[in-house]
Simulated assay, not measured.
Amino acid sequence: MAQWNEDEELFALIRTELATCPVSDVMEQLGFRFPMLPPEIRPLRGDMVMVGRAMPVQDDPPVPYGSPDRFDARPFGLLFESIEALRPNEVYIASGGPIQAARLGDMLTLRARELGAAGVVIDAHVRDANAILALGIPAFAHGTYAYGLQRRHNVVDYRCSIRIGEVRIRPGDLIFGDGDGVCVIPREAEEEIVSRAIEKNRLERKVRAAIEDGQSVVDAFKKYSVM
């Protein structure tokens, strides 16, 4: 039985009880081969923690500007609309388009924060890093880079299914990020995953306490079967 009744309780429980490491371990044990986004996607600061529901965004490289077969005459496609579509406690998570360009800066991240977003995850770079850090909203990306947005990426859809690396992200999936990376937890399996991860994490605390008391890792593993 779940230890929570609504998202706010779930998010608070994750923040109190969990890190991405036990969540990733449990997901692999349950058969999810790729529980984590690629390791290149890192928090802008190591102590950032992000928990929320996925609002996926699909980018594509824009067609050459002025081409008669282009499907969107705007230089950023649906970028602004995708930001405005955010709801409280959602994570703006974007894939596609050129990784080497910055996709979000401080102004759009500010708007995401004002709309109540839980964080942003970009399979590329961000820019205006110091200003984003000052906003206090968790941001995960390949890094920071001033190389700009216009005519280098083009949002074509949002609140849709996307893929980052080997991981499929769908609207409403649970996104959990910390200093070790970002987990994507399928919504239909989140109760089992979170509950098992909490159990594992509590056992790991006992192992840590045993080691602190001088017990060998061999004996601690024999007793708790977790490490």
Rank of each mutant, 00 (worst) to 15 (best):
G105S: 07
D173R: 04
I169T: 04
I162C: 04
G148L: 11
D178L: 01
I137G: 06
G148F: 10
E114H: 01
L115N: 12
R168M: 07
I169R: 04
V121C: 04
A118V: 00
G105H: 13
M107R: 06
G181N: 04
F176I: 03
D106N: 11
G116Q: 01
A139Q: 09
G172W: 03
A118Y: 03
A124R: 01
I169D: 00
G143W: 10
G172C: 09
I99H: 08
S161P: 13
I132F: 01
L104A: 02
I137W: 03
A141K: 02
L174Q: 05
A134E: 15
R163S: 02
R170F: 11
D123A: 09
G136I: 15
Y92N: 15
L149M: 13
I175V: 15
Y147Q: 13
G105I: 10
H153S: 12
I162Y: 00
I162D: 02
G105R: 00
Q100F: 03
H125Y: 14
G119C: 00
P98T: 12
V126S: 09
A134Y: 12
V120N: 04
D180R: 09
R187H: 10
T144N: 08
I169H: 00
E188F: 12
R170E: 12
F176Y: 09
D157M: 05
T109H: 01
D106A: 13
F140R: 03
I122G: 01
E188P: 12
P138A: 10
Y158D: 08
H142C: 11
I99Y: 02
M107S: 13
G172R: 06
R111M: 06
E114M: 15
V156Q: 11
P138W: 07
V167E: 09
H153E: 15
A94C: 10
A117S: 07
A139R: 05
Q150P: 11
V167A: 09
Y147K: 11
R103H: 14
G143T: 08
